[in-house]
Each structure stands twice: as structure tokens, then as C-alpha cells.
Write a protein that binds this DNA or RNA. Structure first.
Lengths: 248, 248
DNA sequence: TGGTTGGGTCCACACTATGAACCATGCGAT
DNA sequence: ATCGCATGGTTCATAGTGTGGACCCAACCA
């Protein structure tokens, strides 16, 4: 499942065997054998020419069958389109995946300078990035602690300037402010604003966010964008509760 | 992966442990352990109250990430909607999954009598059902033989009246006729018409189909519906080739 | 109260995954 | 032409992990 996930993260060009070995904690023969098993099951496929591994049809099939329960992107697609159109910047749907956030949908606006700091499939610990931070801040305190604890080592190692302590401070200001702001903390100059999305039972599902260069996120524009996000989020959330998808 | 698939097939109400044990060839402790592993990985989730198992968020995430490569339903959604609206009957998107066909999308028309012979998530051997038969007939002969051989035992056991020999005859007439017709072979009185969909490289991706009661599939209406299907299939196929999704 | 059904777990045992070492192939440089 | 070096892929003794019959428990119903 770790491998499946890595293949998913690898984007439209897929992943090579070597890349997967490097990204996983497994040895080459093991990776290869597991990939063969995934291929047999249809969850992964290998391009005959390039020898690279991609997600298989069965992933798509299972995903489609899981849509009635979890289909956030469908419910948010038009909201994201409106956000991108209205702002001219790039809009995203991010979803929670345990203690990480996955970017599932990206819609570019018309403005000529576009940040590519966040691409579809990318995963970061909760709190890293605007949408991701919005989700983290939306969690109940117990869960927040658990998530931060789980991510602690990865944060300190791979995300300098986003150590647990700083993250907690960010969460606090996010909660007061009402929306999450990423002031170029991951890629310098690439700013973002995000708001969380919840299922009708209150659990955090994902987030809507906007990204742009620093100059386009200064007051008073930042507040305007945040208002835009909040209104679209409300729209999406009513839709999420209407389709009474989830029993639990 | 077999279990994952079974959970997927089980529809929106999920599956109980006992059902999964029965449907799989595994023993109860094994099923339970594998399910726990799938739950750990986020591919499956268990409803705390009902104790039933459902597809998890990660299935949806992987499915979304696989959409650029395999996203048939998105490409066919509006065509299916038009089919259902124009015919008043129920329209389907089916996809190939090895030697089986999976129903991924179902759109009901306005007509008051609706067949529920095919529901989303249902899987049958290739050749069983209109869309499924359309796919089988669209395969090159070598592949057709392989598929029929693989399904032989299941066909004879579970689908009386659709033994390999009869299926081959059906394929022949389908190829001549240009579209697949299921004259109530699975559920008496429930008829269907289907046409195959191909990727731009010629490989069979899935099918579009319509289902209705027998009386609504008699000449000349059957031919009219087939024409409708063919034209929508053409639309979908041009869209499939435009998004040059697949390298291989 | 007693029987039945379904969910979930234990642990001796058998089988299966593991990875260091190895082979094969494609490609750029000399 | 030939070498060197990535990168993809495979082998096989060994360590370790999954397997399932038997069992427990709770809920439900007569």
C-alpha cells in the first residue's frame, strides 16, 4: 500500500523502479515483487516502453466506486473553477489522508505568473501549505496533538522553519484569523490562503485553497480572497451534507 | 486485492465480515486480518456502528490520481445523461477489468418501468450483459479466446444459457450487427443494447449501454437506440483521444 | 434461560517473503 | 568498436510471517 501510494504521488509520468526503491524503505527485489503483485491485481500498470509504473485501471474503478462516500472533488469542482476564474490565481482541492494532505485538484487562473509549488498528487504533512494548515487547525485538539506528534520527525527533517512549535503557533493564529495563510513558508514567494471543508458530522474532509505570488496576497486582497474562499466553502459543504453519503 | 474488490462490489451499504468470507475463498481470521491491513492503509474503512466494511478515502484518492490516465466516466458522463434523457431508459458506463466488466455509472431515464438488473459496482464476466458483450466482441480474436477460456468455468456454473459456445455465437452476431444485444439472457424481460468504447490505441476501454424492458427494445426502436449509442460513443471516443492520457 | 448467529481473536505450524549477490540491457564517452 | 556505468530485473538459502481450526463473546430472539 505504501508503494501504491508512491506510484500515485508520482504524477502523470509515473515512477521508475529506482525512484520507488529510493522513496520506499524497501529493497529492489522486494519493490519489484510487490509491484508485480499490484500489477497482477490491476492496481498498477507498467509502460512497456518506458518501463515506468503508473496507477492501473483498478485504482480508477475502486475510486469511482468510492465516490458516493468520499467524492469531494466532484462536489468542489465548480467551486474551484469559480475561485480560479474570479481570482485569476490557482485554486486547489486538498484532502486529508491520515496525518497528511493530498492535493487532488488544481485549477489555474488567468494571471500570467503561476506558482507550481503544489501539484496534483503531492502530499505534505498536515500543516504544511495553506489548505493543509486550514485542515490541521480545524481538527479537535486531541487529534491535532496526535497528528503533530506523528509528523514531528518528518517536519524537523524535511521542512525547516515548520517545526512542531512553529506549527502550533500557526494553528493558533489560523484559528483566530478564520483562515490559513502560508506566507511563502515552503517555497519563497509562493503564498497561499486556505479554508477547511467538513463533512456534515463535523469531521475534516479537506480544504479549498488559493495560491499566488506574494504581491497578490497583500492586504486588502488577502481578506477578499479569504471571503471568496469562505463563501465557496459554504456552498461545497451544503452539497456535502445533501448527499448523505456516509453512515458513520 | 481480491477483498478490496469485493468491498468495492458490495455497493453503498458495504459488506459484512460474513459476506466477505462467503464471497472470498478465504477463512474468517484471514479475511479479518487482511481487512485490518487494508484499514491501516486507508483503502477500507469500517463503520463503527454497523461493523460493515466500506471502501476508504485512499481508494478515492488513488482513483482521482488515476483519472488523467483512465477517467472514462468523466469523459462519458454527459453522453450517458443525453442517452438516458433521449431514450427514457437507463444508460450505463461499463469498464473492462481483465476478463470481467464493471458497471461504473448508471443514469436512469424518465420511463416508469426501470430494470435494476445492473447496478453500479456489479461485475460480470465479459460477454454477460449488453455492454459487456460489446466489449468482448470488440476484442481481437486471440484475446477473446483467452478471456473466454478464463471465464469458462464461471460461465458454466453461474450463468446458465451463456456457456462459452453460445457466447461465441453471440460475439459473431454482435460483430455482424454492429452492436450488442442482450435479449433478457440474464434477467428475463430485461433487455439491453451496448456499444464498445476504445482508447485511441485501439484497446477496449469500456462500453456504453442502454437497458429497458423487452417491449421497448423491439424493432424499429432497437435500431434507433443503437444509432443513438453509436453516435454518443463516437463523441466520447474523440474526447478520449484528445486527452492524450496514456503513453503505452 | 437457552440456542443461534455474527463479529472477533489465539497460537502451533507450515509456508512464503526477504535481500545480498548476480545477470542483462541500453547508452554515452573515448 | 569497446568500455563503463546506470538502471531494470532475477535467483535462492534463510528468516520470518501468514494461516485457519478451535475458541470466546455479545446481541438477539423464542
Amino acid at each position: 500500500m505504501m508503494l501504491l501510494n508512491l506510484v500515485g504521488e508520482s504524477g502523470p509520468d509515473g515512477a521508475s523502479l529506482a525512484e520507488l526503491v529510493a522513496a520506499s524503505t524497501l529493497e529492489k527485489p522486494t519493490v519489484r515483487r510487490l509491484l508485480m503483485a499490484l500489477i497482477r491485481g490491476g492496481l498498477v500498470e507498467q509502460d512497456d516502453k518506458t518501463r515506468r509504473y503508473h496507477l492501473g485501471v483498478d485504482c480508477y474503478i475502486l475510486g469511482t466506486l468510492a465516490t458516493p462516500r468520499h467524492g469531494l472533488v466532484d462536489m468542489a469542482a465548480d467551486a474551484v473553477a469559480r475561485l480560479a476564474a474570479a481570482s485569476g490565481d490557482t485554486a486547489f482541492v486538498t484532502m486529508r489522508r491520515g496525518s497528511a494532505a493530498v492535493c487532488l485538484h488544481r485549477e489555474e487562473g488567468a494571471y500570467q505568473i503561476r506558482t507550481h509549488a503544489l501539484t496534483v498528487g503531492a502530499q505534505h504533512p498536515l500543516g504544511v501549505g495553506a489548505g493543509s494548515l486550514a485542515m490541521l487547525a480545524a481538527l479537535p485538539d486531541a487529534e491535532l496533538d496526535a497528528v503533530i506528534a506523528e509528523n514531528a520527525s518528518r517536519l524537523s527533517e524535511s521542512y525547516p522553519g515548520l517545526e512542531p512549535k512553529i506549527l502550533r503557533a500557526e494553528v493558533a493564529t489560523t484559528r483566530v484569523r478564520g483562515y490559513a495563510l502560508n506566507a511563502g513558508r515552503i517555497v519563497a514567494g509562493s503564498w497561499g490562503i486556505g479554508v477547511a471543508l467538513r463533512w456534515s458530522d463535523g469531521t475534516v474532509a479537506g480544504a479549498l485553497s488559493l495560491a499566488a505570488i506574494e504581491s497578490r496576497m497583500q492586504p486588502p486582497r488577502d481578506a477578499e480572497l479569504a471571503a471568496l474562499l469562505a463563501s465557496e466553502a459554504a456552498t461545497v459543504e451544503t452539497r456535502m451534507s445533501r448527499g448523505l453519503n456516509r453512515a458513520n
